[in-house]
């Protein structure tokens, strides 16, 4: 039985007893959509590394153990109900510049710009972020640096991302600050709980691009 199936069973019981079931976000239940997320026994997504909440299974818990479950806690993620939080701040950070401006139909042939395999692989590693928000929940400063840096790094490493590289970094970091996320002090809690293992050095890439943008 998975962790979320345990919550399903609990909720079925609560409904029949006439109580309110516990509201929680979930969708794909295979670790890729990024919708689920809760702090389990004090750790975002639970103690198992590189795992989303939906990928946790009850066999990793002892019989009769008491499990503490909390929502993500960060001021920019207001609680909507029970374990459901509002992560729309992440969408606004992407709106600020997390894209390449290319209208449909205007693209050149895909092979017109070769990309070094090493760059493509590193870009992919950063691009696997699922936007769950565990990094923010785990950070003592409530920083969204890992999330923001993952997108900046993904696009910075590819030739397609170059024209908007510096303006993107500046706009996204400024938006992150405006949303009320804290600053990064290199504690590394974010990458420790990240279900996709986004590397901490993406934050260095973000800071480099941001400084260059401000120096201009």
């Amino acid at each position: 039985m998975s962790f979320l199936e345990m919550l399903d069973v609990l909720n079925e019981r609560l409904i029949l007893e006439g109580d309110d079931p516990i509201a929680f976000d979930h969708d794909c239940r295979e670790g890729i959509c990024g919708m689920c997320g809760m702090v389990i026994n004090g750790v975002a997504h639970g103690e198992q590394r590189a795992t989303t909440t939906c990928q946790l299974h009850m066999r990793h818990f002892e019989d009769n153990a008491t499990i503490t479950i909390e929502p993500w806690r960060a001021a920019p993620f207001p609680v909507v109900k029970d374990l459901v939080v509002d992560r729309s701040a992440f969408d606004r950070i992407i709106q600020a510049g997390g894209f390449v401006s290319v209208p449909a139909g205007s693209a050149p042939d895909a092979h017109s710009i070769p990309v070094r395999k090493e760059d493509a692989d590193a870009a992919f590693d950063a691009a696997t972020c699922i936007g769950c928000g565990a990094c923010v929940a785990a950070c003592p400063n409530g920083s969204a640096s890992l999330f923001t840096a993952a997108k900046i790094t993904h696009l910075s490493l590819l030739p397609q991302g170059q024209p908007e590289r510096l303006s993107r970094a500046k706009a996204m970091v400024d938006q992150m600050d405006a949303e009320g996320f804290g600053g990064c002090t290199n504690t590394g809690e974010c990458t420790a709980v990240c279900p996709k293992g986004i590397p901490l050095d993406t934050i260095a890439q973000m800071n480099t691009d941001y400084l260059k943008a401000n120096a201009k």
Partner: peptide, 22 residues
């Protein structure tokens, strides 16, 4: 064929070979 062009231009990190092509 246009879809692949569009996605690459957006920065979709498709798998590549050592020569840099898809």
């Amino acid at each position: 064929v246009n879809i692949i062009d569009q996605a690459v231009a957006q920065g979709v990190p498709f798998a590549r070979e050592y020569g840099g092509l898809l």
